[in-house]
Design a protein around this nucleic acid. Structure first.
Length: 154
DNA sequence: GCCAACGTTGGC
DNA sequence: GCCAACGTTGGC
């Protein structure tokens, strides 16, 4: 089983939206980056756990934990001409983009803020990808020690 | 294959 | 809204 960190803008889709979804489950659509696509398609497995990270908002940080309930499958929003994530280069016969399904597993009683994570950037959270300068991937792997430590903060 | 221009991300 | 740090695109 692997651990991940998945970013989303709460103004678009936040942990509240996932909590309100049927079965607290939703597809994680809209990834349009090849590196992240490859992770979703090839590395995500049912049972993997991920931090739900809120980005581009007042208090960026980790809001909770989700569990992967469906492994990588074609992102159908790319096929929909009217969808903001439409990509004419992706077709059902030859899909370019992939998504997974996630279910809300745990909502932290408070957001573990980016500032708080940074406090440990040179220590326990050294090399955590989200803290690395210039990192822009919307999904990144998290190693076991980092996973454990961040949970202890929550 | 190079690289300038452009678009996007995301913290601030 | 600014801007640094990328990724992508497309002419050559």
């Amino acid at each position: 089983m692997k651990y991940w960190l998945m970013k989303s803008e709460p103004s678009v889709f936040g942990i509240d939206d996932l909590a309100a979804a049927p079965k607290r489950t939703s597809c994680w659509d809209g990834v349009r980056n090849y590196q992240v696509r490859n992770m979703l398609r090839d590395e995500f497995a049912v049972g993997d756990l991920a931090f739900f990270y809120h980005s581009s908002c007042e208090v960026p940080g980790i809001a909770g934990i989700v569990e992967v309930t469906k492994q990588g499958y074609p992102d159908h929003t790319a096929f929909d001409r009217k969808h903001p994530h439409h990509d004419p280069a992706s077709t059902p016969d030859n899909p370019r983009w992939y998504m997974v399904d996630v279910r809300l597993k745990q909502r932290f009683s408070r957001v573990i803020t980016l500032d708080e994570l940074r406090v440990h950037a040179a220590g326990k959270l050294r090399d955590l990808l989200i803290l690395r300068r210039g990192n822009r991937l919307s999904i990144t792997p998290v190693d076991g020690a980092h996973w454990k430590f961040i949970n202890s903060l929550a």
